[in-house]
Design a binder for these strands. Structure first.
Length: 895
RNA sequence: AGGGAGUUAGCUCAGUUGGUAGAGCGCCACCCUUACAAGGUGGACGUCGCAGGUUCGAAUCCUGUACUCCCUACCA
């Protein structure tokens, strides 16, 4: 038998343990198996990214599920992957090249994309290796990248198929535009920042009347693109001007004065300039009133030829110049401070401009209908359930999705424009002739697809769809739909909803059964983790310092139904301590099994009932309890309940009591009794370690290797449940629970008196247990040595109360049993502390008695309350009264 | 503005059918008791946001209200 180090050192074991798992192939799932399938697809992190705490939380939950199911006899498959993350990756590589003074456009598309591939090949495995540090038990053979050939084929097939049924179309629309990146970006990539700016009031002369209309705007430079002025139709101040025209200062364009209820009479001046090509609201008005759309910006967000003399200026400079000129020409009225929220590009930091451009769109309404239905019907369940409403609310207000991006990194749109007829030919393979005019002059669209397009297909594209090879077919048959999708609530719309739609459309089935939504990881004060705040924490650093198991456990033990997770290193340290506790408890057991004869039946070996100590029966009862708690909690995704139940079993039952109770048996008892306890101890530890494994896999695997009774490896050994463990758990005993509770109460009472009277643990006490009931006397004398050992006693008498003169007294009542712990204090302490202690107890009892008496003398309570509750209260009242009497008596003995 | 969530100990949070409020951390005191000082034992600390209502009884159910957070859309 090996011995293990006296302090748990995660660094020493984690790498080795992980390599052993991987070498043995325990993470691999079978395409075909007699075992029931259980599958999870990992939300793919950015291929060039680092593992952050959000991933760590997300992965810990998934790994817990996978390991639990794997141990529970399932063909558990966890499919890892990485995302090409269009904008993010392109930006990173672009920045790197800039350091070498190389610009993207200098390289050209092909060479630049080659550079990104180089980057991907160099750093693409970094995050996988970080995942290994966390203990992720993914089936690495199935690892997929979003630009892999198979996934690309799926993307093309889906695009073409949706285009053919008119669900994908091309259109001129206003989109969020990032100037530095020269691309449209999704709403997800826009950060709204509350900014202090100004509201500028500007006069527009009304043609022919000599009147001036004062408009209020935060963006004076956009007046160069104005094509109307709008007022509220009910606004008496301006009613007479509706239908007339006004002149835009600086560029002298004649524009209509129109009426629209969108205009708020109370806000600003009640007059709004309309710039349909540069504002989302104005765009809508422009559409309804059929206004002209004048674009005044270039793709780099500089002023274009429509801006006249302002051409070439950046937006902010144009604003300055426009204001100067307005002042010079007398059109400027005033400026007022104004707070507004401005969209910024999350990648470049630049202000996002609404920009009119040709883009590809996906019609969402038809796709949304079946996707709503599967959630409404409960085929897909959100956990926590409240996200269902959020999801449906969004689906009911869904808008078409701009799927094209003006980037180079990503899935290029499979559409070819004809130079002759300008129409598009959309196909999975490069077409040779235009399908409209048979011209051969075709040019592929320059744009790539939004990253979320390929993500939407992820649950089935990773399983080989649409390839029809046997492997692909079997994989899909076995593992689709998956069981869980685990992710944060920030991407429900961008990802979860779209996967559901695509699953329905192309697989005619949901992509997953349960969507488990966890909160986002924040710092200990609840702030977002960000570089600028300097509060971000690297999970790898946490693993280096405290071990992966401690990090994982700290997540699982504090994961409360979808709430944001406030991370604190202190808490990780707490669970590091717990890991050490597990380690040392195991060490204790192993050191006491040196002479243990391993039964040939191994884990099936059962103790001979006759020789089981009451403590053995008791710990098995507690084990049965925790097995049930853990199972119920995991089945209901109450991960923190499971973690907490295990924590308490290990620390408060196994370590605090069972180990202490067994010490005397190990040291002095008869060989037969010792052997039985050894067997129970080995069996309980074995189960405890297996129960803990999905939560903290490394330490448990390492301990498991050293156990005398064990299977092949903890990771694939059976997960204990009250069902599959029933033979062993049959040794649990209710009587033993009652008996041990009694012993624990007595010991606690003695410790309590010791503590409050500050009697040193070094002082061995002489005590008396006042008991009149025969059966209670019997139980206590049975357990005399245990009590004496643990409570550190010199002598212990059991019998009548005797002389309680100058004694500390603690009454105990368990069920029908009554006893008193009586400790003579003469010569040990100053009595004042004990008098205070007793007085405090009496006060508490008086309060209780008053309360209970009040309740029980209330006729309505007696009439209406549950009989059990009444009976219980009656017993409590009687007990409290008895205890009060004996304590009052004890108190008089000090005078 | 619309939608969602929350308010319980100093901090982070449990509290499943209403029946005298719990855990971990932190704090205080005492202890190196032969697995563990990353430990042990004991202790202090709560008007359950506020106000009503239902009930014999409310942290829990109902109504109102204050505050906080998140999401979506944002007023030119």
């Amino acid at each position: 038998m090996k011995t293990i180090a006296d302090r748990y050192n995660p660094q020493e074991v984690e790498t080795k343990v992980y390599q052993d798992w991987e070498k043995a192939g325990y993470f691999k799932a079978e395409d075909q198996s007699k075992k029931p399938p259980f599958s999870i697809i990992l939300p793919p992190p950015n291929v060039t990214g680092f593992l952050h705490l959000g991933h760590a939380l997300d992965h810990t939950i998934q790994d817990l599920l996978i390991r639990w199911k794997r141990m529970s006899g399932f063909n558990a498959m966890w499919l890892p992957g990485t995302d090409h993350a269009g904008i993010a990756t392109q930006t990173v590589v672009e920045k790197e090249l800039k350091k070498q003074k190389i610009l993207r456009h200098d390289l050209g598309r092909e060479k630049f994309v080659d550079e990104i591939w180089k980057w991907k090949n160099e750093y693409g495995n970094r995050i996988y290796n970080q995942m290994r540090r966390l203990g992720d038990s993914c089936d690495w053979n199935r690892a997929t990248f979003t630009l892999d050939e198979g996934v690309s084929a799926a993307v093309k097939k889906v695009f073409v198929s949706l285009y053919k049924k008119d669900s994908i179309y091309r259109g001129l629309r206003l989109v969020n535009w990032s100037g530095p990146l020269e691309t449209a970006i999704s709403d997800l990539e826009v950060d709204h920042v509350v900014t202090k700016g100004f509201m500028y009031h500007i006069n527009y002369p009304v043609d022919g009347t000599g009147e001036l209309l004062t408009v209020a705007t935060t963006r004076p430079e956009t007046m160069l693109g104005d094509t109307a002025i709008a007022v509220n139709p009910e606004d008496d101040r301006y009613k007479h001007l509706i239908g007339k025209t006004a002149t835009v200062p600086l560029i002298n364009r004649k524009i209509k004065i129109i009426a629209d209820t969108y205009v708020d009479k109370e806000f600003g001046s009640g007059v709004v300039k309309i710039t349909p090509a540069h504002d989302f609201n104005d765009y809508k008005i422009g559409k309804t009133h059929k206004l002209e759309f004048i674009n005044i910006l270039t793709r780099k967000c500089e002023m274009n030829e429509n801006a006249g003399v302002y051409q070439g200026l950046k937006v902010v400079d144009a604003r300055k110049k426009v204001l100067e000129d307005l002042k010079a020409l007398g059109f400027f009225v005033k400026e007022e401070p104004h707070t507004m929220s401005i969209g910024h590009c999350s990648r470049s930091g630049a202000v996002v401009e609404p920009f009119l451009s040709e883009q590809w769109f996906m019609k969402m309404e038809d796709l949304a209908t079946p996707a709503k239905r599967v959630v409404e019907s409960g085929t897909i369940r959100f956990e926590p359930e409240s996200w269902t409403k959020v999801y449906l609310h969004w689906m009911n207000h869904i808008e078409d999705w701009c799927i094209s991006r003006q980037l180079w990194w990503g899935h290029r749109i499979p559409a070819w424009q004809c130079e002759a007829c300008e129409k598009f030919t959309v196909a999975e393979t490069t077409p040779t002739v235009c399908e409209h005019c048979n011209s051969t002059k075709l040019k592929q669209d320059e744009d790539v697809l939004d990253t979320w397009f390929s993500s939407a297909l992820w649950p089935f594209s990773t399983m080989g769809w649409p390839n029809e090879s046997p492997h692909s077919v079997e994989t899909q048959k076995t593992f689709y739909p998956t069981n869980y999708l685990v992710t944060g609530h920030d991407i429900i719309f961008f990802w979860v909803a779209r996967m559901i739609m695509m699953g329905q459309e192309f697989k005619k089935d949901v992509p997953f059964r349960t969507v488990y939504i966890h909160g986002l990881v924040r710092d200990s004060q609840g702030r977002k983790m960000s570089k600028s705040l300097g509060n971000s924490i690297d999970p790898i650093e946490m693993i280096d310092k405290h071990g992966a198991d401690a990090l994982r456990f700290s997540f699982l033990a504090h994961l409360f139904s979808g709430k944001d997770f406030k991370f604190s290193e202190q808490r990780v340290e707490g669970y590091r301590n717990f890991m050490n506790k597990v380690w040392n408890a195991s060490r204790f057991v192993l050191s006491n099994l040196q002479d243990f004869k391993v039964p040939v039946e191994g884990v099936k070996a059962l103790p001979a009932r006759a020789h089981l100590s009451v403590f053995d029966h008791w710990i098995i009862a507690k084990l049965a309890e925790v097995e049930k708690q853990v199972h119920d909690a995991l089945e209901n995704e109450r991960f923190s309940d499971a973690a907490t139940a295990l924590y308490q079993f290990v620390w408060n039952q196994f370590c605090d009591w069972y180990i202490e109770f067994t010490k005397p048996i190990m040291n002095s008892a008869a060989a037969e009794e010792k052997q039985t306890t050894q067997l129970v101890m080995a069996q309980v530890l074995n189960r405890m370690i297996r129960l803990l494994h999905p939560f903290c896999p490394f330490i448990t695997e390492e301990i498991y290797t050293n156990l005398p009774i064990k299977g092949q490896a903890c990771i694939i050994d059976q997960y204990p449940t009250v069902l599959n463990d029933k033979d062993f758990l049959a040794f649990a005993s209710k009587d033993a629970e009652l008996e041990v509770d009694m012993v624990k109460e007595v010991i606690t009472a003695i410790r309590n008196i010791r503590g409050e009277n500050r009697i040193s643990p070094a002082v061995k006490l002489n005590i008396r247990l006042g008991v009149t009931q025969d059966d209670v006397q019997k139980i206590l004398s049975h357990n005399k040595s245990a009590i004496m050992n643990i409570a550190r006693l010199e002598n212990m008498e059991i019998g009548a109360d005797g002389d309680m003169n100058k004694c500390a007294v603690a009454p105990i009542a368990i069920g029908e049993s009554r006893m008193k712990v009586i400790i003579p204090l003469e010569g040990l302490v100053d009595f004042n502390e004990e008098i205070k202690r007793i007085q405090k107890t009496i006060e508490k009892l008086e309060k209780d008695v008053g309360l209970l008496h009040g309740k029980l003398s209330n006729e309505k309570f007696v009439q209406n309350a549950d009989p059990d509750v009444i009976a219980n209260d009656r017993i409590l009242l009687q007990q409290s009264k008895e205890q009060m009497v004996s304590l009052k008596d004890a108190l008089t003995r000090f005078q």
